[in-house]
Every structure is written in structure tokens, then in C-alpha cells.
Amino acid sequence: MDLSAINPVLLVASLIVAAVPFLLAAIGELVAEKSGMLNLGVEGMMITGAICGFAAAVQSGSPLTGFLAAAAGGAALSLLYAFLTLATLANQVASGLALTLFGLGLSSKLGRGYVGIKPPASATLDIPVLSDLPVVGRILFSHDVMVYFSFALVAAVWAFLKYTRAGLILRAVGENHDAAHALGYKVKLIRLMAIAFGGACAGLGGAYISLIRVPQWTEGMTAGAGWIALALVVFASWKPWRVLLGAWLFGGVTVLQLNLQAAGIAIPVEYLSISPYLITILVLVVMSADRSRAPASLGRIFHASQ
């Protein structure tokens, strides 16, 4: 085996970029799930974000406007899910699946007229001195702004959940909505905000694909990234930093298998690409020895009946 063609530094730098869409969508879904809402509509929200961001960036000429619009679009779509599950007490699994169906349709409708257009370029943040450092410079300091934003978001969510009162309330709602309600917290309002945050993050993840990774608009371009994000949250056992780890693992397996192929090493590609899912199942099994990790109210319908 000749592995000399593979440059580990570049490989790591690549996987960091490849992981961003999953990371953004997953960290948002994590917050929603922490509040007890299992939203399977991530794919629908991502693709809606992708087109909202793309359209806004093309119209305004500014990628920043694009990302803001993507977050708004994803959040707006998630409100549909919130209405169904919180106001009309519909089943979360079915509502999420319906949301994905609707989002895919909506996005291709919005996307008419945007096929074959190139969006405005996003600046890479080449931090002067740091990016010239050997190894670390290439891996850590020569990416686009959204990469750093996604890291910051993970840190912020972690700090929010762990150290703030609001984060504590959110977790309480997810663990036992009846008790939280009895304590006087507005369960539905908190969940509504968590869902909207999840939608906004999914929208950003989608826009990262349409504005930076690809960058172009084509129908169905997220190609299942939303489902991977869902897997990631579970893999991470609802812990923000592990989401980052998981995103690198999922992104890394793809990048690694492509690298091995390019280096001419015969590998069974299909079986390697199954591995992240198998690892996730393994993590689930290991985790289930300790029952307390998944939010206890996840997926359950809440109705305040005094």
C-alpha cells in the first residue's frame, strides 16, 4: 500500500470543511431534541435554507444576506412543524416527514430561475500570520467564515445548555414536560423557540452547501445531508462537542475513502460508507446501558391539562 500520495494535513483540512453542513444542521436539531421535539424534517429545512440563501445572496450580491435569509427560511418552515406538533398535537414523526416532503417541493418551486447561476463568492478568512504556520495553519486558519461560525455555534450551544438558566429550563422541558409545566415554565413557548433555532441552523447548513461547497442551486442538492444530521445527534448522544466529533467522523469517512481511491488503493467503497451508520448503532447500544442520556420526553406529545 502506497499512502504517500495522501497528505494528512490536507485531509484533515478537507474533512473540517466537509463536516460543516452536517454540523450546523445537527447542532440545531440537538437543541430541538433537547427540548423534547424529534423533528425529522431536517432535510426539508436544509433544502429550503439552501434556496432561500442562494436567492437572497444572488439578489443582494452579499453572501451574508444570503445566510441570514437561509436562517430565516429554515426557521419559517420549522414553524409549520411547530404548529402541527404544539398547537394541534400531531404526531412528531409524521409531522417531520410531511415537513421534508413539503420542503423539497417548496424549494424547487422557489428555485425556478436560479438554475445555472453562480452566487457571489464568500471570502475565506486567511488570518495573516496564523494561516502561514506549518500544519496547524492549513488545518485551522485558512477556512471560510462559516467554518469558524459553526465552531462558535457548537461552543455557544454547549455553554448555553450547561451553564445558563435558560439552558437548564430547556433541558428540564425535554426531560419531563409535565413537571416543567407544573413549575410554571411555558413548555410550548420554549419548544417553539428550540424548533425555530433548529430550523435556522438547518437552513444555514443548507446554505453552506448552495453558497460555498458547491456553489450553485440545483434541485434536491442536499442529497440526504439532513438525514445524516439526524444520525449525528444520536451518535453524539445529545452532547454538543460530540456532534463536532461525529460530524468529523461522517465527513472524514467520505473524504478518507475518496483519498484511498485516488491513491489507487482498492477498497470496497460501499462497505466503507456503511461504517458511520454501523458505528452510530454501536454507540447507541453502548449508550443504552445508561438510560439517562436521551431526553426523556423526546417525541412525546405535551398537552397541559389542569
Binding site: 394541534t88 410531511a98 413539503f102 423539497l104 417541493g105
Partner: peptide
């Protein structure tokens, strides 16, 4: 896409 949205809407309303 419109059909897909229509199906989505049908599900929303039924739910």
C-alpha cells in the same frame, strides 16, 4: 414540485 407541496399540505391538514 407543486404536486409534492400539495401532498405535503394534504398531510399537514389531515394531521
Amino acid at each position: 414540485a407543486t404536486i409534492q407541496m400539495f401532498q405535503g399540505m394534504l398531510l399537514f391538514f389531515l394531521l
